[in-house]
């Protein structure tokens, strides 16, 4: 009886924090999040190439009647560029495109959950890599702008702790929200058939679409404001 109750009450999903290994290439294990990460990267690169090769020359020639797609692309680029220039001044030339690509990866990677894959951002390794990249940029720009004067900032040991925790806070925020949404969606897909038909249509908007857009925006915005703080 008690054993039966344990199996009913405890959450028994096949989701675990380290992703499952799908296959191996030689000694290197390829996990399911790596597969979705590569799919995301291929989609992003192909999309960027198509826009650059097929659309941008045509847009340069005639700027009489901008289409909806052109307005969308230009407003996205403009949003990242203007907020990067606002936060990080002269470094905005690099910071804007860099965080545009990171935000694109996070948003599109989280959206791979909609086609049944495990999103790359629900893997702690991927989010930690993104967080460490942001941390390296923050430290590099801080020293590049202020040289040795930046060391004065680290004389206060509180600042060392609050700066050192930045990659973990960025990584765990992204990982926690995407992974919890992934587990909730997994539980919903495991429900009896009558709930599985209609419920995901409502739930995936909250737990997948909302997270994908909000978390990529927050990641970009927080990293940019940290860079702005470091170089001011």
């Amino acid at each position: 009886m008690s054993g039966n109750l344990v199996t009913i009450l405890s959450v028994k999903t096949d989701v675990s924090i380290p992703p499952k290994t799908v296959f191996r290439i030689g000694p290197m294990p390829i996990s399911e999040t790596m597969v979705s990460a590569f799919i995301t990267m291929v989609v992003l690169v192909v999309l960027a190439l198509i826009i650059r090769v097929a659309f941008v020359p045509r847009w340069r020639k005639n700027d009489v009647k901008p289409s909806g797609f052109r307005i969308f692309v230009e407003s996205m680029v403009n949003m990242f560029d203007s907020s990067a220039r606002e936060q990080s001044g002269g470094y905005g030339v690099f910071v804007g495109p860099f965080y545009f690509s990171l935000a694109g990866f996070i948003a599109l990677g989280t959206l791979t959950e909609l086609i049944g894959l495990r999103p790359p951002t629900s893997d702690l390794n991927a989010t930690l890599a993104l967080g460490i990249m942001s941390f390296a940029l923050i430290v590099f720009f801080g020293f590049h702008k202020k040289h040795a004067k930046r060391l004065l900032h680290y004389c206060n040991p509180i600042n060392i702790i609050s700066d050192g925790v930045v990659p973990f806070s960025l990584a765990l925020r992204l990982f926690g929200s995407v992974f919890s949404g992934y587990i909730i969606m997994h539980l919903i897909y495991g429900l009896p058939i009558f709930a599985r038909v209609a419920l995901p249509a409502v739930a995936s908007v909250i737990f997948t679409l909302f997270h994908a857009l909000i978390q990529s925006y927050i990641f970009m915005f927080l990293s940019m404001s940290f860079i702005g703080e470091a170089i001011e």
């Binding site: 924090i17 765990l172 925020r173 990982f175 926690g176 929200s177 992974f179 919890s180 587990i183």
Partner: peptide, 8 residues
Amino acid sequence: IYGVLVAI
């Protein structure tokens, strides 16, 4: 989110 993470 940290609370949810700890619970998970």
